[in-house]
């Protein structure tokens, strides 16, 4: 059974329909990439999953439970971590405070301390910057912090909204390498990317979103090879 399953999800911003009948699933242990142009509904899909936007109709199930009536905090507690669009680190707080807030839903201090050690293991750069204000970090470091902060809730499913945005090619490589490690350590990943080539190289499967609907779904390698995807998103 799929860990996350969306079935015919519709979503609206006011009267504008942002998602039409979106159906997708993420199996335990996978990395799934959601690719598509600006405004295709990628971020909206993640926001619907994490409860920040109430879907109009359709069902969203996570580990067998219906998420539709859940508040965002209840969804985080059920095991979905979400590194938001544009990173949104707490700029005037220290790296440590950011990570601590990531563990907000967790009650046990000892567990959080262990998770923090794990996150710092994954992102050694953050350890060097623990006391520094998050706003003073470089873009890549902020992205690391955003991912690390989302990991602090110890999610079963980690959702990443454009982790490569605004980063140098070398940093993109680093970040994607780390995402692979996080996945290998047992966390399922749902990834949004405009950088389709990188995302599909890393992912198990992928979905192509076009104006709010799923246009294509396949294994990542087949999408990489597909003529239409190559023409539209890979620039070749």
């Amino acid at each position: 059974m799929a860990l996350l399953e969306l079935h015919n999800v519709d979503a609206f911003y006011g009267r504008i329909r942002a998602l039409r009948d979106v159906s997708l699933h993420v199996n335990e242990g996978e990395i799934v990439a959601l690719i598509g142009a600006n405004g295709a509904g990628k971020t909206t899909t993640l926001r619907a999953i994490s409860g920040l936007l109430q879907p109009g109709s359709g069902s969203i199930r996570f580990a067998g439970e219906d998420l539709r009536r859940c508040t965002p905090d209840a969804i985080v507690r059920r095991g979905i971590g979400h590194a938001p669009e544009g990173r949104r680190v707490f700029a005037r707080m220290s790296v440590r405070e950011n990570l601590e807030l990531g563990a907000y839903t967790r009650r046990s201090k000892a567990d959080s301390a262990r998770d923090m050690a794990g996150v710092l293991e994954t992102f050694p750069r953050l350890r060097e910057r623990l006391g520094q204000k998050a706003g003073t970090l470089s873009g890549g470091e902020q992205q690391m912090l955003a991912i690390g902060r989302a990991l602090m809730s110890r999610p079963r499913l980690l959702m990443l909204d454009e982790p490569s945005l605004g980063l140098s090619p070398i940093l993109v490589q680093t970040i994607f390498g780390i995402i692979g490690e996080i996945n290998a350590a047992g966390t399922t990943v749902l990834l949004i990317e405009q950088n389709a080539r990188q995302a599909l190289a890393l992912a198990t499967r992928g979905y192509v979103l076009e104006v709010g609907r799923v246009a294509q779904e396949d294994t990542a390698s087949r999408l990489l090879a597909s003529e239409t995807v190559r023409a539209a998103y890979l620039g070749a």
Partner: peptide, 14 residues
């Protein structure tokens, strides 16, 4: 967290 960035705070499960 809300004072700093309400949306980010909600992402953290607040």
């Amino acid at each position: 967290a809300i004072r700093e960035d309400e949306l980010a705070a909600r992402h953290m499960g607040i």
